[in-house]
Structures are given as structure tokens and as C-alpha cells.
């Protein structure tokens, strides 16, 4: 359902969509039940000639039931949401699968810089490939990201991955993703970071193994790879 508006392109995107859908359906159900109940009561107890208003304290058992029963039912729904949320949280944030590669993601006002290992497969070596605004990754590979900020709070957000992670100055935050199909999608900052926050954008380019190898070969010199500008 959500995927029809925004593609789900990571291994955990559909789990997050399902959780949001579950919350939406349960909360939506109770919202409409409550609203229906209010309007029905307003109609049933509307002002009429010859009827005096009754003062209801809600202490009588048969009246208190109107509060207690929905309350317990909502708690049961909460249990479903909590179980679903904890499972998704564990898979996305607590679990850290073995990586095929690691990229460094650096936020600053108002650009993203990415550092990828070169042919030696090791980060922080002379053959690293650095790019601004464009992150090139390979489909089907598990990536760890090391997220940093040079100045203020940022948030590394890839909507098609359903990924959002705060970047905090002075900290290196590790997370992971695995893309499920090729394509080019948005990267954005999802934490207010100054006057240019709204235009702090990048692109993630998910490539087939052949395309990615060709890109690596083209850029694996010490020279800096920079994306085309406009």
C-alpha cells in the first residue's frame, strides 16, 4: 500500500511499511469508532422538548463499562503494536549483519560526503573513493554505514530504504542497509540543520555488480570522484 507511493528498496523497508500499516489500521479503527460513538451520543441525547438533562458521573458499573471495555481492547491492540515494533526495531537497529562493505557517511551544512573503500576493500586507506552528494552502492550487498557529522545535528534519510538515522557531532554511528533493486533515489537530511536544511540533498545510485565494478574501476585512483553538478 505504502509502496505504491514510495518504492521499498531495502530488505527491511517492507517490514517498516507493515508496521506503519498495522499502527495506521488499529489507530484508524479506534479513531472512527470513537468519532462514530461521539456523534451517535450527540444525536441520541440532543436537546428535546420535555427532556431534562441527566448528570452522569460515570461511577455506576453499567456506565463505567463504556470506558473500561474499550480501554482493555485498546491495550490488547497496543500489545500487537509493541510486539511488531520491537521485532522491527531489533532487525533494523539492534541487529548488525556481517557487512560486504562499509561506507563512511559524513554530514555537514549542507552537503553529504561519502567515503567508500577502493579496490583493497578497506576503508581509510589511500585508494578510498570520496564523493559529494552521490552514494554509489551495489544491489544485494550488505553495507555498514559509519555516520558522522562535522558541525551540527543532521539525519541521514533514505526514504526508499525507510532509513533515518541522526548524525551527531563527535560520534560515529554504525548502521546497515541492503538494497533490493537497482535505481537512483533521493537522500535527504531529516533533522533541521540550519538555513540550508531543506536543500541538503543527495542521490543514492544502486548499481548492478557490473555497473558498480565499472564505476569503481573508473574512480579508484587517488583523485577525488565528484558527481556531475546539475
Amino acid at each position: 500500500m505504502i509502496e505504491s507511493h514510495l518504492p521499498a528498496v531495502s530488505t527491511y523497508a517492507k517490514d517498516i511499511d507493515s508496521l506503519i500499516l498495522l499502527i495506521g489500521v488499529l489507530v484508524g479503527f479506534w479513531f472512527f469508532v470513537c468519532q462514530g460513538m461521539f456523534f451517535w451520543l450527540m444525536f441520541k441525547f440532543r436537546a428535546r422538548e420535555g427532556h431534562r438533562t441527566t448528570y452522569v458521573t460515570g461511577e455506576e458499573k453499567e456506565l463505567a463499562r463504556w470506558v473500561h471495555i474499550p480501554h482493555y481492547l485498546v491495550l490488547v491492540c497496543d500489545l500487537f503494536i509493541i510486539v511488531g515494533a520491537v521485532r522491527v526495531w531489533y532487525d533494523v537497529k539492534q541487529n548488525l549483519p556481517e557487512p560486504d562493505a562499509t561506507v563512511r557517511v559524513i554530514g555537514q551544512q549542507w552537503a553529504w560526503t561519502f567515503v567508500q573503500p577502493g579496490p583493497d576493500g578497506q576503508l581509510d586507506t589511500p585508494d578510498d573513493i570520496r564523493t559529494v552528494d552521490n552514494l554509489h552502492i551495489e544491489v544485494g550487498k550488505t553495507y555498514h554505514y559509519k555516520l558522522e557529522s562535522k558541525d551540527v545535528l543532521h539525519n541521514f534519510s533514505v526514504p526508499v530504504f525507510r532509513l533515518k538515522q541522526d548524525a551527531v557531532p563527535g560520534r560515529v554511528i554504525t548502521g546497515w542497509f541492503e538494497a533490493t533493486r537497482t535505481g537512483e533515489f533521493d537522500i535527504q537530511c531529516a533533522e533541521i540543520c540550519g538555513i540550508g536544511h531543506g536543500i541538503m540533498k543527495g542521490r543514492i545510485k544502486i548499481q548492478s555488480p557490473e555497473e558498480h565494478s565499472a564505476w569503481m574501476a573508473q574512480n579508484s585512483t587517488p583523485a577525488i570522484a565528484t558527481a556531475s553538478a546539475e
Partner: peptide, 22 residues
Amino acid sequence: RSGIRGMHPDDEAALRMRPMAL
């Protein structure tokens, strides 16, 4: 705007300027 300036990872001030020019 064309990326001749403001696309080097170590040029922090220019990285701030480029999105503004865009």
C-alpha cells in the same frame, strides 16, 4: 552552480555555498 566549486569533500565553506547558489 555547475560544480566547478563546492564539490570537493574538504572544502567545507564551499560545500555550504553550493546548494545556496543552486
